[in-house]
Design a binder for these strands. Sequence first.
DNA 1: TTGCTATTTGGCAAAATAGCCAAATAGAAA
DNA 2: TTTCTATTTGGCTATTTTGCCAAATAGCAA
Lengths: 101, 101
Amino acid sequence: MNQSTSGIAPPSKKQIEAQSAVFKALGHPARLCMVHALGQGERCVCDLRDLVDLDMSTVSKHLAVLRNAGVVSGEKRGNWMFYRLRLPCVAGFLDCLQKHL
Amino acid sequence: MNQSTSGIAPPSKKQIEAQSAVFKALGHPARLCMVHALGQGERCVCDLRDLVDLDMSTVSKHLAVLRNAGVVSGEKRGNWMFYRLRLPCVAGFLDCLQKHL
DNA sequence: TTGCTATTTGGCAAAATAGCCAAATAGAAA
DNA sequence: TTTCTATTTGGCTATTTTGCCAAATAGCAA
């Protein structure tokens, strides 16, 4: 037999999809590493490439995943593309993880 | 040419791995759905199975992913296995996502 | 214009993940 | 003991993800 269920409404399927896309985007070591760096300010793709030591095209695709999930945003200035963190809550959550893991 | 880099020490590779395991665990609609439910209190596997409508064995494997990442913990009482949320910061982060997505 | 630099996109093979069924396990009940 | 119930594990295929190379794109410089 099952437990009785709570009366609080769960998030919609759309919300769950959007939220899990954010988590999925952060759920890769290279992407999380880049997000950590972006937490300290904007970076160009070349900086992030040096950080994670992957092919430039791979880094670009990782950034596309983060962009599509709404985690970061990019702005082109001259030849460079600068990325910045778009979700303010990420930094605080990372701090909390640091403590509890 | 690259930007100048900050002097703040980045997290260790081990920390990055542990943190991205948490995000990866949360980065699946069914698992996130279950975590939402667990945010309101412990649930047995059968309750979670009803929630996400997947095979019992699939639910069990999803819970193993969450357990291995440190997101939830399980306790057996009688025939039932009860899972509960182990990371207090998840609920607050989900609230923040709700606002900013 | 041509050339150079930074980034993105297409395509492919390798690796990881998801979900099912069947079988194993553990504990309660008869 | 045997049986039933809840959960986990093994194994398998289908799907998704990752990361490289090559090619395309965009903007600056000459």
